[in-house]
């Protein structure tokens, strides 16, 4: 155990944990916001994938990575709004809407990549930008803490700052109250004059913006290119992280951290010569095990009460 904490305190390992948990945390917070309003965003995977491509294409076209990020946020938000339109405007089921969005995004990003580069696999030919790392002045000079906390990717800081922001928004603002009202009892909310359709439109849009940021991080931070289906199920892991987080921003943060550590362990074990395929399973098995343990404990508690 001491060895484990020693390893985490190693700046290089700590940086890897932050690197792999950033997209999970951003996407999971996005899932959280819309889930609290009653729509579990299964389409997160597709929104991330679209954000990743939009970021690369726009940053390559404008030679400005920040415009790329901005476009990814807008694109993600629009996709979220589109989902809300289908769910509440046309009356499709949210699970089917999410599955369809994932399917469409996989096809459309491959198509978009092909139209832009003539290649269906990777965007290596495009000169796309990378979003910068931030060195925090003053803090960077402090021994031990400095190297741990300074010099990470700008979206990593944004993701961590978003945790208290989302927590406060949900718990302490009128909009957060509306979200929770719609999510827990749409009829009572309607009686109080809160429109479910409007709240779900806003939350899905916001959820999409977070997904766009997670995607932009993947293609303009984690690596510097777009590859077909590069999210590889991360949107689904984020979904699991949100469910593990039991509907709170801090719980989601903790779950994303656990999954980030699991993935880091997987990455380091691979370099030590253990079969990479088995290690790649870890980030997918951990959420399944934890979800089941939670559910089992909840069930046991409910039985004790009754």
């Amino acid at each position: 155990m001491i060895e484990f904490f020693g390893a985490i305190a190693d700046p290089a390992v700590f940086a890897t944990v932050l690197r792999v948990m950033t997209p999970l945390l951003l996407a999971a917070l996005g899932v959280l916001i819309s889930d609290r309003a009653g729509v579990l965003n299964i389409g997160m995977e597709g929104i991330m994938l679209s954000g990743a491509l939009i970021g690369v294409l726009v940053s390559a076209a404008t030679a400005n990575p920040f415009l790329g990020l901005f476009a990814a946020l807008i694109g993600g938000g629009l996709l979220g709004a589109l989902m809300a339109f289908f769910i509440n405007g046309l009356g499709t089921q949210f699970i089917i809407t999410g599955i369809a969005l994932n399917m469409a995004a996989l096809a459309a990003t491959t198509l978009g990549l092909f139209l832009a580069t003539g290649d269906k696999g990777m965007s290596g030919a495009l000169k796309s930008g990378v979003l910068p790392n931030l060195d925090i002045p003053l803090l960077g000079g402090v021994p031990i803490l400095g190297p741990l906390l300074s010099g990470h990717h700008m979206l990593t800081y944004l993701a961590i700052l978003a945790v208290p922001a989302v927590a406060i928004m949900l718990a302490r603002t009128p909009f957060g109250l509306h979200i929770r009202a719609v999510g827990s009892d749409p009829k009572a909310a309607a009686a109080a004059g809160i429109s479910r359709n409007r709240v779900q439109l806003y939350t899905l849009t916001l959820s999409g913006v977070f997904g766009g940021a997670a995607g932009a991080y993947l293609s303009m931070g984690y690596v510097s290119w777009f590859a077909q289906n590069m999210t590889a199920g991360r949107g689904f892991i984020a979904l699991a992280a949100e469910v593990m987080g039991m509907g709170t921003a801090w719980g989601t943060f903790a779950a994303a951290a656990v999954l980030g550590i699991a993935e880091t362990v997987a990455i380091t074990m691979q370099t030590k010569g253990l079969p990479s395929e088995l290690m790649q399973m870890i980030p997918y098995i951990v959420p399944a095990v934890m979800l089941t343990v939670y559910a089992a404990r909840r069930q046991a508690k409910a039985r004790k009460i009754s």
Binding site: I95, L291, Y294, A296
Partner: peptide, 29 residues
């Protein structure tokens, strides 16, 4: 896991699909 423990079958099946994929690629390799 759903019937016995009440865990969401949708989320579990989504992530376990990938776990089974990598287990399968291991056997292949």
């Amino acid at each position: 896991l759903r019937v016995r423990f009440g865990a969401s079958e949708m989320v579990n099946s989504l992530v376990l699909n990938f776990a089974f994929l990598f287990a399968g690629v291991y056997v292949l390799n």
